[in-house]
Design a protein around this nucleic acid. Sequence first.
DNA 1: CTTGAACCTGACACCTGTGTCAAGTTCTAC
DNA 2: GTAGAACTTGACACAGGTGTCAGGTTCAAG
Lengths: 136, 136
Amino acid sequence: MRIGELARRSGVSERSLRYYEMQELLRSERTPGGQRHYGEWAVDRVIRIQALYAAGLNSKKIAQLLPCMRDADGAPSEIATPRLVDELAAERDRINRMITDLIRSRDVLDEVIATASVGVDASAVSGADAVGAARG
Amino acid sequence: MRIGELARRSGVSERSLRYYEMQELLRSERTPGGQRHYGEWAVDRVIRIQALYAAGLNSKKIAQLLPCMRDADGAPSEIATPRLVDELAAERDRINRMITDLIRSRDVLDEVIATASVGVDASAVSGADAVGAARG
DNA sequence: CTTGAACCTGACACCTGTGTCAAGTTCTAC
DNA sequence: GTAGAACTTGACACAGGTGTCAGGTTCAAG
């Protein structure tokens, strides 16, 4: 597929996809004219990249990490070095703290919402239970 | 307490504390000379502000939200308007998606770490102390 | 061919909380 | 009273992934 379709299917802008390529996170084949072509695998990969960015990893870390990840179809093409494992463990711990804090903030929001919704039309909190499953 | 102590106890820089005041998230009393003084309550408040920032809320939302939160000692001083409740519900949903994605990313990291640790000292994957244990 | 959508590269800007420096003032301990 | 730590305001800069525009090229349909 070309970049437009990948952008649409992954929910990531074309601008970002080109940026990912510049950061060596995402490869593409080029037509003789220079346009990018991607395989089906690209959709999942882009979504994973996006998630890692959202988790606070920077391009460099993601670039190191990606080849060590298990693809949908098989084993990782590389094994993380001890040095990288160290860094990833630190990231993991940071992410765990992040999750804890997020849950706390979410619960605060829930409380404020609940307090304001007492005796108020229930439609004001529509969508509230759609995400209750994520509560831990 | 003065700003230095608050910064130390809350883990937030003085710079940020002054910024919070500018954003009307944090009030302080001033000495005749102009120096800021805070009560004990400030520590918790600053930590909460920090957590809300980390959850992706901007200063304006936090400023609206704070008076609707229950303090350590009592009831909220304001009740969120229906309009605000809507916005907070949207934030809450966004945070839930964020949590889901973070958990997924963390699990990916765990897998990469575990894969790299096969045949290596198992203590390298035992959590926060992995940083120390795996070094070398 | 022609045409228009899709794509290319390159450049500039933004967001916004935070780091940092400068120059001056206030507080506290002795 | 004095030294020095702590504080004040103000200003400038940054991170870094992303939005967006400009000007040109490629692709595919008719």
